[in-house]
Design a protein around this nucleic acid. Structure first.
Lengths: 333, 333
DNA sequence: TCCGCAATTGCAAGCGCTTACTGCTTTTTT
DNA sequence: AAAAAAGCAGTAAGCGCTTGCAATTGCGGA
């Protein structure tokens, strides 16, 4: 990168004003007389001047950039959340630096530290674990954080979610009312807050409430083939209804059932707890807990803008309504 | 953002050296004696000093940040490319600012200008149109650009693709040899370079080479429901084999065929030209032109690192090998 | 016409870091 | 052992912009 061709100084000289005045014009400061403003704007247009955001960032200590932490880039769940975030970010003129954690969990601190070093004004965090080290870094730099589609035990971090316990209970209830009594739950990482403190307790409570002794909790089932391979176990265990966190995993189970010549929903009902486009294009289509992912992202980003501007927010833990969308993987009543 | 707590100046004072020396230590400059380096590093660790990347960027005119232009966030095609990009970016310690164009095409210039104002060191461009205005902005700021998974008529922009013409021809050939003579092609925007100058010409040439007079080119078919609704037309037109750009669109057609009680591949063969996970989880699974998306992203990013460092690159137009992956939407021979 | 106050504008000190240059030490060369 | 080269570290001038404060201007009222 060579030296910038036209700077605020050039504009100031051409418009016969000081840099300060040009700066005021750029930033829409009202303390500029109309004629002056117009003269400066004319020069800006003539020279095609574009402010250097890095210099602005250094001087103003605001970068109009937010960080986005996402577990995987190729997961539509996060992509749909991101879209909501992106739209609102664009609206408020923030750029997004995206960082994926993928499976390299050990690198998480570094990735986030690098984001913080870039002086992002705020962070939207979608990863499902928030290590102490990271939490401290956020607090130390005073960077506001909003969790989107995930939760944390520390209540201090704002979050936008649905009521996972209620949703799961409702889903289990649906299958139970369909006559399925041998219900199971399939999750990925059992230690995330969403799973450990929400989904699994909801499942256990449901069993207790219905006097079912035998619990079927399958953990570390993360992807399509994990799901595909799980079915033989489900069959062996006599499971007749299952709630699956990730829809791709659910599709794995679904295909495995079909390939085994069994029937869905007769032999097995499936409900997925996080539905993306994939859940709706497979046949039979999956009954889903439909989370308003786009809205969740949008609300999270909007909340972040408020936090970044020290505006009032009423309640930092937002729960949006979900919908239990009955499709072909459960019985039609 | 309040004033930074610990700066390079604090480290210098504590370590009893000048800022310049601390800077050298941070940047791995070898002109520092071992003991001095260690002393400085000790102070850095003790104070938990983290360099301010914005200040570094202003002073060095390098931000170690690249821009990523993607048409849609919720399209797995770009997500898989992005993953390859992200991995290499992490390796070379670049951050990624992502900007989606979505459908708001009129905003494209602004979005990219904002990226350029942030002084990104380079750009990976995945959108399928590169307006003059944008191209000029890149050239003016001297920002290297690499197109990934897309092409441009201006040969000056580096690109990483597959041989679309060859791939499509091979796909058409496969169906032709299966006895399908009424072949069609389904694309989204017919004016993108990939479609206008590659896919459609390849299709036309194929027809000409096989003395087929009647051409079936369906354009502006962009998503699942467009695909779903298209089938009645395909049927009316007697199409018995179709190559579909986007796999989600292909799945729309697929489901429509099934719902109509027809058989795939007997009544209609389908090959999709850009396969993501979706193509492989639907049943019948789609025969696909398998693009090495991850690798394409990785190669594009690696090339960009070279361009950003003014290193030699041999050939700025890279074509990676693809694979014609036969699944259930074409006959098994 | 002159004064006071508000509206404008300019001044200049940073923001936190990099990087020629310069100069002082060591080391190497002969 | 003296001179040349190399190794280290410091000085200070920016990078391009924002912003508190001071200075100037313009305007209405007395």
């Amino acid at each position: 990168m060579h030296k910038q061709e036209v700077t605020i100084y050039d504009v100031a000289r051409e418009a016969k004003v000081s840099m300060a005045t040009v700066s005021r014009v750029i930033n829409g400061n009202s303390n500029v007389r109309k004629e002056t403003r117009e003269r400066v704007e004319a020069v800006i247009n003539r020279l095609h001047y574009q402010p250097n955001a890095v210099a602005q960032g250094l001087a103003s200590k605001k970068t109009t950039t937010v960080g986005l932490i996402v577990p995987e880039l190729t997961n539509l769940y996060f992509a749909e959340l991101s879209k909501g975030i992106d739209d609102i970010a664009l609206l408020y003129k923030y750029n997004i630096i995206i960082s994926s954690i993928e499976n390299r969990l050990m690198k998480e601190d570094e990735v986030i530290q690098s984001l913080l070093n870039k002086q992002v004004d705020g962070v939207i965090y979608m990863s499902n674990r928030l290590p102490d080290k990271v939490a401290n870094a956020f607090k130390q730099t005073n960077t506001p954080v909003v969790l989107a589609g995930t939760k944390d035990n520390r209540d201090e971090f704002a979050s936008v979610t649905i009521d996972y316990q209620k949703a799961d209970t409702e889903a289990l209830n649906l299958m139970y009312n369909d006559g399925k009594k041998n219900l199971a739950i399939v999750v990925g990482d059992p230690d995330t807050v969403v799973n450990k403190d929400n989904r699994i307790p909801a499942y256990r409570k449901f069993l207790a409430d219905h006097d079912i002794a035998e619990e079927h909790i399958y953990t570390k089932i993360n992807n399509y083939s994990d799901g595909y391979n799980l079915y033989s176990q489900l069959e062996k265990d006599g499971v007749d209804g299952v709630i699956v966190t990730r829809d791709v995993t659910a599709v794995g189970i679904l295909n495995s059932v079909m390939d085994a010549g069994k029937n869905i929903p007769k032999d097995l009902e499936i409900i997925t707890a996080s539905a993306t486009q994939i859940a709706s294009v497979v046949r039979p289509a999956l009954t889903t807990i439909k989370q308003p992912l786009y809205d969740m992202g949008a609300v999270a980003m909007r909340m972040l803008t408020k936090l970044m501007n020290n505006e009032e927010v009423d309640g930092i833990h937002v729960q949006l309504p979900y919908e239990l969308l009955k499709k072909q993987s459960t019985l039609n009543q």
